[in-house]
Simulated scan of single mutants.
Amino acid sequence: MLTIIAATSENNALGKDNQLVWHLPDDFKRFKALTSGHYIIMGRRTFESFPKPLPNRTHIIITRQKDYEAPEGCFIVNNLTNAIALCPKNEEVFVIGGGEIYKQSINIVQKIEITKVHTSVEADTFFPVLDLKRWKLVFEEFHPKDEKHAFDFTYLTYVKR
Rank of each mutant, 00 (worst) to 15 (best):
74 C>T: 04
95 V>S: 12
127 F>E: 01
70 A>F: 06
50 F>C: 01
115 T>I: 14
54 L>T: 07
77 V>C: 05
139 F>R: 11
97 G>T: 12
75 F>E: 03
99 G>T: 02
39 Y>W: 12
72 E>C: 01
119 T>C: 12
154 T>D: 11
71 P>S: 00
100 E>W: 08
135 W>C: 10
134 R>G: 02
36 S>G: 09
43 G>M: 08
45 R>F: 09
87 C>P: 00
23 H>C: 09
37 G>T: 08
50 F>W: 06
19 Q>L: 13
75 F>Y: 13
133 K>Y: 04
8 T>F: 07
4 I>E: 14
34 L>T: 02
3 T>S: 07
143 H>R: 15
83 A>M: 02
110 Q>R: 12
86 L>R: 07
126 F>H: 11
95 V>N: 11
96 I>C: 10
63 T>V: 10
97 G>D: 03
5 I>T: 08
105 S>V: 00
157 T>C: 05
101 I>G: 14
78 N>L: 03
38 H>N: 01
84 I>A: 02
38 H>T: 01
124 D>R: 04
48 E>V: 03
21 V>H: 00
65 Q>A: 14
160 K>R: 13
132 L>V: 00
81 T>Q: 09
129 V>I: 15
152 D>G: 13
36 S>C: 10
19 Q>I: 04
124 D>H: 03
128 P>R: 09
51 P>C: 06
141 E>R: 10
105 S>G: 07
148 K>Y: 02
28 F>C: 04
2 L>C: 05
124 D>C: 04
60 I>Q: 09
22 W>P: 08
102 Y>R: 09
110 Q>K: 08
16 K>G: 02
64 R>K: 12
79 N>R: 03
19 Q>N: 11
100 E>I: 11
159 V>D: 01
83 A>Q: 08
7 A>K: 11
13 A>M: 02
143 H>S: 14
41 I>F: 11
91 E>F: 06
70 A>Y: 06
49 S>T: 05
59 H>T: 00
74 C>A: 10
55 P>L: 08
150 A>I: 06
156 L>G: 03
63 T>G: 15
88 P>F: 05
48 E>C: 02
61 I>N: 11
57 R>N: 01
128 P>H: 13
24 L>M: 14
139 F>C: 12
108 I>F: 01
43 G>P: 13
92 E>A: 06
40 I>Y: 00
1 M>N: 05
40 I>C: 01
10 E>K: 14
96 I>M: 05
66 K>M: 04
141 E>S: 15
155 Y>V: 15
56 N>Y: 13
62 I>A: 14
31 F>A: 15
19 Q>E: 14
142 F>Y: 14
3 T>W: 03
88 P>M: 04
152 D>A: 14
59 H>R: 00
67 D>T: 07
66 K>F: 03
